[in-house]
Design a protein around this nucleic acid. Structure first.
Lengths: 190, 190
DNA sequence: TGTACATCAGTGAACGCGCGTTCACTGATGTAC
DNA sequence: TGTACATCAGTGAACGCGCGTTCACTGATGTAC
């Protein structure tokens, strides 16, 4: 055992470590993709070694599922400030969101990889979709619930697509234009 | 050298092999993701060994860039049949497209991975975005060119987002609904 | 047209590397008395 | 309250594996005479 190592750790500290791994993982996965971050990078970001991931989560796959849920909860907390559709759409389609995937939307960051993920991970992701749609539906003008949900569903799809493409293209002008025209189009509808 | 091996190959045959690698690569990348297909799988799918990839393309990265362009050309040829916006949108947002990524849109299949790709690959991808937007803009009712492009840009973003999400979620009902509401919404506008 | 030789698409062994996971071990924490 | 012991979060070495790439080699194709 190396010099400064502490072996057994208090339950409190262990829970703290667990939260820190989840928070760092949620950021790293969005920044580099699910397969772009190894277990070493995941635990190192939290100041631990890879083995601790298996004590806490059992597998990388399980950690991925939990990191999605954990990170989305953080997003929901931060998004609580946007109390109108207009504000939510504007924030989502902003250059700031585009340029900071690590603290942004999981759907835009990881959506394309989902078809190839485990049931556990896809389930977490699907809950994020449902939650996002429900939140926007709640901000839409009152009509029948089903109708609001449908509107919100199409709205979310359009927003996700715009950010995916805005991040993907190598031309900043085109990227800005994708965000701008989608903002204009969705404002028109709302 | 093993039994049935042919070593030097005619220029004709070499070009044929090259096309076959590109075609198979375009399919495999869309089905399994760029990092989900190794050089062995890529060349084996064309009946060759991994070394030939380096004769033909120099690197996996270069092959990725060329496979995107090659595969998109195939899509353009097949899409020529859809001569109206309505037909194009309906085909794009169909369950058939959702369930067959290997022959479908590159933007929906690989968009999320682009931020982390090489300049070469991102450039190919950006050309695909521009081409897709230009094609749809050409089908839109005549107004000023800029206006049609803006409309097409927002349209493409919405379509891509819908297919990404429809493929990602683990609930078939939700998946179908994403396609249906986006179809309805975009038909309304067009 | 026939012969000699250079070219180069494709082969397959080998490379270093990072991946996810396992496992024996550590020793402070937490518990039972 | 004090002591003896079990627990278990975290360590670090080791595992097999597949990755992208390199390289010496092959031998039919293509070319120069």
């Amino acid at each position: 055992m190396a010099k400064g190592d502490v072996m057994r750790v208090s339950k409190e500290k262990a829970e703290e470590n667990r939260q820190r791994i989840l928070t760092e993982a949620a950021r790293l996965f969005r920044e580099r993709g699910l397969s772009g971050v190894g277990v070493d990078a995941l635990t190192q970001a939290a100041g631990l070694t890879h083995g601790s991931l298996y004590s806490q989560f059992g597998s990388k796959d399980s950690l991925m599922a939990q990191a999605l849920t954990h990170g989305h909860a953080g997003n929901v907390a931060r998004a609580a400030g946007n109390s109108s559709i207009a504000a939510s759409v504007a924030a989502y389609l902003s250059p700031e969101h585009r340029d900071n995937p690590g603290t942004g939307c999981f759907m835009a960051a990881l959506g394309c990889d989902m078809p190839r993920q485990s049931g556990e991970v896809r389930h977490s992701f699907t809950q994020i979709v449902r939650g996002s749609v429900a939140r926007l539906a709640g901000l839409l003008p009152k009509r029948r619930k089903r109708e609001r949900e449908d509107r919100a569903l199409a709205l979310v799809a359009a927003m996700v697509g715009a950010v995916v493409l805005a991040r993907a293209v190598d031309d900043p002008e085109l990227s800005n234009r994708i965000l701008a025209v989608t903002r204009a189009r969705l404002a028109e509808e709302a």
